[in-house]
């Protein structure tokens, strides 16, 4: 892939692979979790958040390598060419917001990767165990925060209500027929074979079960924004994402062609 390809928001090739949104999800969430380094609420969480961030970065790198050059894909695309869901790009906010975001995403990633693993995708097979740990960690914190103190409950509820509208996007099919891909893919189209309705049902059961156990109220509001143009899977992101990318990419882009 050449650099100009990497910058193009749309086109044939790796940018249309249904694996790209999965790689972008993992990279972007890893980056956000990395922002916590050095100021987590307790030392054990420095270790846990970094661990999750490293696992996700590992997923992203493995997926990017299937599609092309990992650094070109991460550092030389502009905002509109990223296909991550909007959920993962949301700013960390307080620890409750970070953990609710983690709960929503890791429950999704675990279920999706479980299906991909069943279809024989080697990365998913390896990653699914890590996803399970991430989801377990987020569930425990959701319980502690939701059913902890009045303040933690209020913060966890606020985070839940605020992030809910980003969850609908998770269940848009990736691959042929979905917004993330085309039928002209190389190799078996594993993502196209995912049962997205089952994924949504399982996710909803799991997440509402945890919220309920944590004494949090499951929002009844829309899971999608009202913007007809779409969301992250179509390369449409929220404002904080551009600033995140600017920070992530600036050094790499300041030295074109350099090796690190």
């Amino acid at each position: 892939m050449t650099r100009s390809d990497a910058r193009a928001p749309y086109g044939a090739g790796p940018l249309d692979s249904p694996l790209l949104p999965l790689a972008d999800d993992a990279l972007v969430l890893s980056h956000r979790l990395g922002e916590w380094a050095g100021h987590a609420p307790v030392l054990e969480e420095e270790l846990a958040l970094a661990n999750i961030a490293l696992d996700l970065l590992g997923h992203a790198r493995a997926l990017y390598s299937e599609l092309g050059d990992e650094d070109e894909l991460a550092y030389l695309r502009e905002e509109r060419a990223f296909r991550n869901c909007q959920l993962v790009e949301q700013a960390n906010g307080d620890f409750a917001r970070t953990m609710i975001r983690q709960l929503f995403f890791s429950a999704y990633q675990e279920l999706l990767y479980t299906q991909l693993a069943a279809l024989g995708h080697p990365l998913a097979t390896k990653a699914v165990k890590e996803c399970e740990y991430h989801r377990d960690h987020a569930e425990h914190w959701t319980l502690r925060l939701g059913d902890g103190t009045e303040e933690s409950h209020a913060r966890a509820q606020r985070a839940t209500d605020s992030l809910w509208r980003f969850t609908g996007e998770l269940f848009l099919p990736l691959g042929p027929g979905g917004p993330g891909g085309t039928p002209e893919l190389d190799g078996p189209d594993l993502v196209g074979a995912v049962d997205w309705d089952a994924l949504r049902r399982s996710w909803t059961d799991r997440v509402t079960g945890v919220l309920d156990a944590a004494t949090l109220t499951v929002p009844t509001t829309e899971q999608h924004g009202a913007w007809a143009a779409g969301a992250g899977r179509q390369g449409l992101h929220t404002e904080p994402f551009g600033r995140m990318l600017a920070e992530m990419q600036h050094l790499h882009r300041s030295h074109p062609g350099a090796s690190w």
Binding site: G34, A37, G38, A50, L54, G58, D71, L251, A258, W260
Partner: peptide, 29 residues
Amino acid sequence: MQPEANWITRAPSLRRKAILMAKVQDEAG
């Protein structure tokens, strides 16, 4: 952890980003 975490979000390659994050994590450990 602070002076090094200062560069996690700006690490110039994914490999370096992973190495640096793991290092800062080791320090917490």
